[in-house]
Design a protein around this nucleic acid. Sequence first.
RNA 1: GCCGCUGUGGUGGAAUAGGCAGACGCAAGGGACUUAAAAUCCCUCGGAGUAACAUCCGUGCCGGUUCAAGUCCGGCCAGCGGCACCA
Length: 812
Amino acid sequence: MDMKSVESKWQAKWEKSKINVFNKKNADKKMYVLEMFSYPSGSKLHVGHWYNYGPTDTYARFKKMQGYELFQPMGFDAFGLPAENYAIKTGIHPKDSTEKNIETMERQLKNMGAMFDWSAEMVTCEENYYKWTQWLFLQLYKKGLAYRKEALVNWCPSCETVLANEQVIGGECERCGSIVNRKDMTQWFFKITEYAEELLDCLDDLDWPEKTKLMQKNWIGKSTGCEIQFECETGDIINVFTTRPDTVFGVNYVVLAPEHPLAEKFKQVHPENADAIAEYVQKASESNDIDRLSTTREKTGVFTGAYATHPLTGKKLPIYLADYVLYSYGTGAVMAVAAHDERDYAFATKYNLPITQVIQKKGGETVLPFCEDGILVNSGSFDGLPSDEARDAIAVHLTKIGKGGKKINYRLRDWSVSRQRYWGAPIPMIHCEKCGVVPVPEKDLPVKLPYDVEFRPSGKSPLASHEGFMNCTCPNCGGKAKRDPDTLDTFVCSSWYYLRYPDAHNDKQAFSTEVADKMCPVDVYVGGSEHACMHLLYARFITKALRDMGYLHFDEPFKRLVHQGIILGPDGNRMSKSHGNVISPDVYVDEYGSDIFRLYLMFGFSYTEGGPWNDDGIKSVAKFTERVERLVRKSTEESKTGVTEMRAQEKALNYAKHYAIKCITRDAEVFSFNTSVARIMEYVNALQKYDAEVTDKNVAFYKEAIEDLIRMFAPFAPHFSEELWEITGHKSSVFEETFPLVDEQALVKDEVEYAVQINSKIKAKMMIAQGLSDEEMQAIVCQNPEIAEQIAGKTVRKCIIVKGRLINLIVG
RNA sequence: GCCGCUGUGGUGGAAUAGGCAGACGCAAGGGACUUAAAAUCCCUCGGAGUAACAUCCGUGCCGGUUCAAGUCCGGCCAGCGGCACCA
């Protein structure tokens, strides 16, 4: 079969018949299958795209044939740094290169033959999309979930730009390899932390990979403890957070992060230490994250000269600045318990500070630092309590005396969304000298991204130097004002796109609540696991925020999530240009066609595992389809015989068919494509056997068996199967057929092969009739000559029977 | 350092729920057809052992539970992924 022409023939037919377009009338049977949309950076689809989209489309087609109304849209995540980098390198405008790339990728995606509903296509860099991204920003702002603050951001000194967290690879700039440092900048943030608890709670009920849920859980990083107040000699209160209030009687000193505002005050109160403090703060601010966060680095710090009072003992405690305390977590201050914390212990040892043991190991010698739970000592009235009880008792006591109490902290930080970049959605905010920060009125959206912008890096937002863009009038007072020069993180664009697809042409709203409630959440979402703590978390947050504003009435965007594995280069490394191990799908698609390539991806790998690329098997997959084609063509030449009864051969083939249907129905549901294909191969083997061995075929039965083969093969090799369907005399599409249903009756065999064991070792195999009692079965087994010989003269003490599988005689 | 996942033939990978390890393929070897090759079809294919059976060993390693362990438990080793001074 000439796959190339067959594929284009059916793609044209599908487009004409609109078979891939979602039919709103059947929305009550909807099945929303979504692949993570692609980034139009390169000009071609790579193996990763194929591996994500090909098998997932097979799943989608399978669901369609099960009677669901399929919605499988595709679009492009078109804003972002790669296009801008490309522009900086080549001078080609991001808009131009992106549009060109999208054109190429659309063509390639269509050639893949996936059931994408292109009528719902959308592109995030187009005005009719980013207008609504800006609208989303305004809603969050109105709700108090978008705010501006000064914060430390990742700054690449050579590219002169802020980098997103994911662009900082091991502390280095992804683009140029320079060491990233931190810079104080005023940025827009989304208050994702307000949803920390719910984001954590709802994980339990999601049908997501456990690993991904765990990653999000760790990322959110809930820790339960206590906030404790230490009064400072200046009258200031130092609040510290601890998960170990049971060790509070062992506090030896208090540590503040170098960025803590009190550092400045201590310089004035203790001028004798001012120079040392200033020097230390300066040094800390210069050090980069690689150094700062290294756990192996020797602890450093400086004494401020100031003291704080222990809230329970009244003891005077020296206050230190040390960069092992992070300003961004908790309160930026820590109570140091040298005896029971490794870091405090190291610091105390280095600076010769006292070490007070307050926890004793249960039933053993306590070696300091002892960081586990134990029994309290030297802790006043709390002596003798075990750590867990003491934590509670001390928290209660602190609350009573007004010096602290229980507190929950999260590792999760608010989401920084400002980017000093050109190729993104402009932040719809105006800065007015009189009125301050003023949101752009919704009627004025979109704030258009101008084309003629100097996007080469200059350390400022490219938009800042575009007068036409920057100058505007204040919507509040009508006076002169400036626009916000930053653009939104592209993750903002992708945090809500799944809501837009079902209502992609709505020009009045981002989406209608009615449509979103009907079509969402996404039933099955498929994409890479690298998005676990970014996109997948952001989308969940935005969904919950929109729900709380009344725009949605569900809690989670993606009911079920599947990650495809990664196809590595043949050398076992990740494919990359620098490794020189990139495999182009085009070569294979050109030679074998898209169905064969997809089929091989499904058959050759375990879908969620992936693995090193190896094309050894692709030829065999092509041969398999040729075998199927021969079989089908030959079957059309069979003319009716008088045979209509179901003889042993027909029953055997019928069993093979229904066994295949049963297994595939189960396996395809859980994305186990390799075993699904294996079962189809087995069924084809059974058909071939029947064809070769039975001369007086039951033709009506055989033809039905062949048609069922085509039906079950259709989701896996769509163009090929359409062609076969036509060859067998059908005018309509095979995708209007129902996926074959299993007949459990056909799977009931008269007799089943049992493995017969004596003392758990296999001694024989026997066909045993179904429906016998245990006693009858045992009797039959014992009559078997081989078995009888081996148990002669011995007593059968026990007989274990596993129905349909084995019989184990325990003899002694 | 902490958390998690994964270790199965020459190879990709199978193995509901503790029940015949290696499904389905690839590669390899042998054979049929052919002048020949390709294609196709048939046979063998974890290791040791045997003339052939028998038998023994075998799912990273060491123990354990069980009539029965790739699967459960305990302890290691290796690889991968995530987090990493989070108080």
